[in-house]
Nucleic acid binder design. Structure first.
Length: 340
DNA sequence: AAGCCGGGGGC
DNA sequence: GCCCCAGGCTT
């Protein structure tokens, strides 16, 4: 099919009509641009075309991208994919959709089963919020996934990204979807930076909005194609660690490449959170025990954690915080998943 | 704006 | 061992 990205462009995107890519090291005149503070930025329309065409050939065959996938399936995938890589989500998503194919099915499930099915995807509060969202959909939306970003945003666990992604990918709404992959693609291709930095700034939000293809005839489909394509490019080619510029469809248009692929600045480093010794590690260890099944005595549970470094105070504090979060429950001395 | 919240795989 | 991953929520 023809790319709708250029249907509003009267002039054909002939090579000569577009500012030529600047080969690294070429000090020739680079077109000035209001879009970034560097000497060269690519023509967005050309990037749209290239990246969308690349996507149509190289996109991964993910089940939540199938035409027959329900909005609920899309929403489940988006929540599971919050900070969890695709390869780990795939099997959990399959099980989940088989077991709870509609929002109402999850809404009525015992919370203990929901947390067990979440398995080790991490951040189990997401599972709790997804069930709460399902219950809200039953109560407020006749058991249907809302079809606008604004309404989706009101659901538990649905932030700016997820609301836009579900509205776009499930309902073809022309929302501006910005995830970590897209931020990085924008930073490199258009801003000329190695990495986008830790915080999502208003300038980045503005850039993302400016970059959306404006196509009157089929705005939803084109916006969705661009969002999905840019995301996939960031996931497969324009990766954080070792980008594969050799096979990138917009390597010759990339502002970062044109600038000589400078290394990330101090400001752009992301600095990890640390893991060993944290409450997150201890909470995770407790949840791993509780997921295995039967209620256990509190003292026995806390002593048996495979974390020699964790103090009794930390173990106790973490269990209490899990109970407070609704991820665990205690009756007398017995601790279990909630509702188990 | 910064900190917290899991867990595993890649390098 | 460090870094990253289709973020969200609280302070």
């Amino acid at each position: 099919m023809t790319s709708p990205a250029t249907t509003d462009d009267p002039g054909p995107a002939a090579p000569g009509s577009v500012p030529p890519a600047v080969p690294a090291g070429d000090s020739a005149t680079a077109p000035a641009s209001a879009r970034a503070d560097i000497g060269f930025t690519p023509e967005p329309t050309l990037v749209h075309e290239r990246v969308i065409d690349w996507f149509e050939v190289h996109a991964r065959d993910l089940p939540w991208r199938a035409p027959e996938c329900s909005p609920w399936g899309v929403m489940v995938s988006e929540v599971m994919l919050q900070q969890t890589p695709v390869v780990r989500v795939l099997p959990r998503w399959q099980d989940w959709m088989q077991r709870w194919p509609r929002p109402i099915d999850l809404a009525q499930a015992p919370t203990a089963e929901v947390l067990t099915a979440w398995d080790r995807l991490g951040y189990p509060r997401r599972a709790l919020r997804l069930q709460a969202a399902a219950q809200a959909m039953v109560e407020r939306h006749s058991g249907e996934v809302p079809d606008t970003a604004e309404t989706l945003r009101e659901l538990p666990g649905v932030g700016e990204y997820t609301a836009a992604a579900v509205a776009c990918f499930a309902f073809n709404q022309p929302e501006v979807v910005v995830d970590t992959n897209i931020r990085r693609v924008h930073a490199r291709a258009f801003t000329g930076h190695a990495l986008p930095g830790k915080t999502y700034t208003s300038a980045q939000r503005r850039l993302a909005a400016d970059l959306m293809p404006d196509t009157a005839p089929d705005a939803g489909a084109t916006a969705c194609a661009w969002n999905a394509s840019a995301m996939e490019l960031g996931a497969l080619i324009c990766t954080a660690r070792a980008p594969q510029c050799e096979i990138c469809p917009v390597a010759d248009l990339c502002a970062w490449r044109a600038a000589g692929s400078p290394a990330p600045t101090e400001e752009q480093q992301t600095r990890g959170q640390g893991w060993a010794g944290t409450d997150r590690q201890v909470r995770g260890a407790i949840m791993a025990v509780l997921r295995t099944g039967d209620p256990v005595e509190r003292d026995q549970l806390l002593e048996a954690l495979p974390l020699p470094e964790a103090s009794p105070e930390q173990r106790s504090r973490c269990l209490d915080s899990l109970i407070r979060d609704g991820l665990a429950a205690q009756t007398g001395a017995l601790v279990s998943l909630p509702g188990a």
